[in-house]
Nucleic acid binder design. Structure first.
Length: 882
RNA sequence: GGGCGGUUAGCUCAGUGGGAGAGCGCUUCCUUGACACGGAAGAGGCCACUGGUUCAAUCCCAGUACCGCCCA
């Protein structure tokens, strides 16, 4: 990208406001960026693409701290690659979030005394659309306030017509390939959302519970089938869910468990009704250590039991309906019919106790399945649902990882991904909510299934195959994650062949929180490979979860949730971003978020603002172009800061390439504050710095702002515009090039030594209690210190150098004898210890023989240096003693 | 139960097979002509514990303890 335009000097000098006020800057700059189309790109095959598909936030969402931790890195990466000249594009959009949105709507309707059924599907959906449109703007507005730079013109919504067409096309294709089927399976039922959910949407929560020990009486010819009496012989079973006893179909024991060998093949009666007899079977899935070693088998309401049932050819009995109430549909449930499940549990336990069938109960901690979305305890139910056959899709997705075509940062998440895909089960994709993509599935009056991309097509098919056009559409909708799984290509216009699709699929990087690797990441890989034949991204950058400073999960109920917009209001977007980014470490799985980091970042911005003001108010004319003086004219401090700038550019670029945003932020921060402001700017106040300082200050500041821009876009732009610059916006300014920064390592090294000396002298001043404005004299050999260095000592250490042929080459302040002696003694002790350490090390033949040559050489040099220092101190001591 | 992390200064965290680091906090001093949202100096650490590998371990390996995440 050659963009040599006329250098524009600032025509709008920032007015002197201290402290820096982000409010007067951020909104104005963002508006300008957006108006000038700086976020927008067209597909350009001539440049390397850098595409990030924004994980679509829920259309009803408001920005939360998790957006801060995942979307800020995305923006930083896109801004960085944009400055590097890539065809960089951040593609935004929102998700219809079926279950979450429907939950809100249903609640709202209930308040009005209505329901979706009374409203009817069409009216209901109209309302949902209106609600989505109303909410949708909020999150995008908040993202703008955070300074995010996606190409808003390309924003998509998962229920847009184009994306819906993509969903139908993929569904039909999968169905025709035999990868989508309908079947009665045990699925996860969320009784609050009133829909099934996939395994990936189920969370496991540790809870205190009760383990009940229940007697199952042996069934025999002499045993009465009902009533209070039962055979003396019985088997005791431990269960956490007595309410499901009504659906028991067997008792299972481990085949090697001697205690129960005699029982296998016998029958027992199911309490508390005792009207049904079930067999005792042997299965290796039973853990003999759990409870009594005998467990009840309830295939209609437990996944493990379902598998046991399948193995033994046992029936599956459903005893609960969709309200999680007891139903007599499959089996006699006696007086419990119609009761809610918790109520049933209490009644059955009471009845067992009354019938003396309850042996004991004990406290028990175990994991229960909970709906991630509603928090409802998930009920496994046998239902007719639609599924995606997972294994054939998982295989290529596993290969993509194993071949290195998809890699994870940090790497360890790759193994998590691998394990999940290896153990993947068929994916339940039908939902009973209305807000979403309705299944493209129709049924003929006699139950034949038609799958087609449109109703017309379905009717045509039905006519041809079954001679009927009378169809009813399946009322279910698709899992939200089905449509988001198509995101990387559906937003580019697929199934149309668009230039965007051609150029921008696959994308380069997926940035996401670890919690949706399975829900979203893995499914994008599976569906991307299936539909496009190519994995949808190369890198998966997994960002840490955000906790509060005490390491607790942020939640509304705990009251510890941090609203990023409040922090933006308080400190500005740049400060929020820097505060967040500085806490992100690539390897971390969590961030204990500290608001103080945002406050520090605000202070940092103020520092930048003030140093800019210093540069702008120099008495001399600022250069009109961004050029450096001839190298020969540069003074030592100039050479030092330029060398530091060079190294900072190299470091920051490398860190950004490796997704190390936290360390990159730390690095640029350190350069600007502790090297540029604290040392270089102070050194420009020397008389001898006047010739070159305006050029070097503006050059370094300009470069520093470009390095900072991906992290803190607003203040970097504001400062960059105020100083000599090249172009219209820092957003498309070129990324700093270390080759354009002159290096002088020798002088830079000498400056580091002087800096240590100055610190030492300041320390001595402080120890002496010398007033800050009082100068101290130091006698130094005439040729040991240059005129430039003399001024440096005077200005930065308050030490006046007095040339003295009798003095040594070291700057030693004049001070009372006892003070000096104490100093010398301390120094001597330290040096002696160092010399001793070095001698011991080098005296070790093993060390000299085994250690690498450069390590040994370094030790030798160190020892030499300490020895001569020690010698000097000892000489000075004997001199002052005279 | 299986897998994966973490344990370094009061707090939050970097870091390296060869002399322990940052920011905040703390102490002392400073209204020095960019900045008190600032400047200067300083105190503070058996780098969780136990073994092993190595000339050399905070770093590599094994085990223990505690904290956490994911999956079942």
């Amino acid at each position: 990208m050659n963009r040599r335009r006329a250098v524009s000097a600032s025509n709008s000098k920032p007015s002197r406001t201290s402290p820096y006020d982000p409010k007067t800057v951020e909104a104005r700059l963002y508006e300008r960026w957006e108006r000038n189309g700086y976020f927008h790109e067209e597909p350009d095959p001539a440049r390397p693409p850098f595409i990030i598909c924004m994980p679509p936030p829920n259309v009803t969402a408001r920005a939360h701290i998790g957006h801060g931790s995942t979307y800020t890195p995305m923006d930083a990466l896109v801004r960085y690659r944009r400055m590097c000249g890539d065809n960089a594009e951040w593609l935004p959009g929102t998700d219809h979030a079926a279950i979450a949105t429907e939950a809100v709507l249903v609640r709202e309707l209930a308040r009005e005394g209505a329901s979706r059924e009374t409203l009817g599907r069409e009216k209901y959906l109209e309302r949902a659309w209106a609600w989505a449109r109303e909410c949708g703007g909020t999150i995008e507005r908040q993202f703008r306030a955070l300074g995010f730079s996606p190409d808003w013109a390309r924003s998509r919504f998962t229920m847009d017509e184009g994306l819906s067409a993509a969903v139908r096309r993929v569904f039909v294709t999968l169905y025709r390939d035999g990868l989508i089927y309908r079947g009665k399976r045990l699925v996860n039922w969320d009784p609050i959302a009133k829909t099934t959910i996939s395994d990936a949407e189920v969370e496991h929560e540790e809870r205190d519970a009760t383990l009940w020990y229940v007697r199952y009486p042996a069934a025999g010819p002499s045993t009465p089938l009902a009533g209070a009496r039962y055979a003396r012989d019985d088997i005791t079973v431990a269960t956490t869910r007595p309410e499901t006893m009504l659906g028991d179909v067997a008792i299972a024991v481990h085949p090697d468990d001697d205690r129960y060998k005699a029982w296998i093949g016998k029958s027992v009666l199911v309490p508390p009704l005792l009207t049904r007899s079930i067999p005792v079977i042997a299965d290796t899935a039973v853990d003999p250590e759990f409870g009594t070693g005998a467990v009840k088998v309830t295939p209609g309401h437990d996944a493990t039991d379902f598998e046991i049932g399948e193995r033994h050819g046992l029936p599956s009995l459903s005893i609960m309906d969709l309200e999680a109430r007891i139903t007599a549909a499959d089996v006699d449930v006696g007086p419990y019919a119609g009761l809610e499940r918790a109520e049933t549990r209490a009644r059955i336990v009471a009845d067992l106790r009354a019938a003396k069938l309850l042996v004991k109960e004990e406290a028990h901690r175990h994991a229960i399945a909970v709906s991630e979305r509603t928090g409802a305890v998930v009920e496994p139910l046998l239902l007719e649902q639609w599924f995606v056959t997972a294994k054939p899709l998982a295989k290529p997705a596993l290969d993509a990882y194993r071949d290195g075509r998809v890699r994870f940062v940090p790497e360890r998440y790759g193994r998590t991904y691998e394990q999940w895909l290896e153990n993947i089960r068929d994916w339940n994709i039908s939902r009973q909510v209305w807000w979403g993509h309705q299944l493209p599935v129709w049924y003929t009056p006699d139950g034949k299934t038609i799958v087609a991309e449109s109703e017309d097509e379905a009717i045509a098919q039905a006519q041809e195959l079954y001679g009927t056009g009378e169809l009813s559409r399946d009322p279910d909708t698709l899992d939200t994650w089905f449509s988001s799984g198509l995101w990387p290509f559906s937003i580019l216009g697929w199934p149309e062949k668009t230039p965007e699709l051609e150029c921008w699929y696959p994308s380069q990087t997926l940035v996401t929180g670890g919690e949706i690797i399975f829900l979203w990441g893995a499914r994008m890989v599976m569906l991307g490979l299936y539909v496009m034949g190519k994995e949808p991204f190369r890198d998966v950058f997994v960002t840490p979860l955000v906790f509060d400073a005490q390491g607790r999960k942020m939640s509304k109920s705990l009251g510890n949730a941090i609203d990023p917009m409040e922090l933006v209001e308080k400190y500005g977007a740049d400060a929020f971003r820097m505060g967040m980014l500085r806490q992100l470490r690539v390897e971390a799985q969590e961030v204990r978020f500290q608001e103080s980091r945002c406050e520090e970042a605000r202070n940092f911005n103020n520092k930048i603002w003030n140093v800019t003001w210093y540069v702008l108010s120099l008495p001399e004319q600022l250069p009109s172009a961004l050029t450096l003086p001839k190298t020969a004219a540069l003074n030592p401090a100039d050479r030092w800061i330029l060398t530091r700038l060079h190294d900072t550019i190299v470091d920051v670029s490398g860190l950004l390439d490796g997704y190390e945003l936290g360390n990159a932020a730390e690095r640029i921060w350190h350069f600007i504050w502790y090297e540029f402001c604290d040392w270089y700017v102070e050194a420009t106040k020397l008389e001898q710095a006047r010739e070159t300082r305006a050029a070097v200050l503006t050059f370094v500041l300009n470069n520093a702002m470009r390095l900072l821009h991906p992290l803190a876009p607003f203040i970097s732009e504001e400062v960059w515009l105020a100083l000599p610059h090249d172009g219209d916006t820092i957003m498309t300014a070129t990324w700093p090039d270390p080759l354009e920064v002159p290096l002088d390592r020798e002088t830079a090294g000498r400056m580091e030594v002087l800096r240590d000396e100055i610190v030492r002298l300041r320390n001595e001043r402080a120890a002496l209690g010398v007033a800050p404005n009082a100068a101290l004299d130091a006698k130094v050999a005439p040729d040991a210190v240059s005129a430039y260095e003399r001024e440096l000592f005077a200005r930065l250490a308050g030490v006046r150098i007095v040339p003295d042929v009798a003095a040594s080459g070291r700057v030693e302040i004049e001070a009372p004898e006892d003070f000096l002696r104490e100093r010398y003694e301390k120094e001597r002790a330290h040096l002696r210890a160092e010399v001793e350490r070095g001698e011991k090390k080098l005296g070790n033949a093993q060390f000299v023989a085994h250690a690498k040559a450069d390590v040994v050489e370094k030790e030798r040099e160190k020892l030499e240096r300490y020895r001569s220092e020690l010698e000097r101190v000892e000489r000075a001591m004997s001199e002052s003693a005279q």
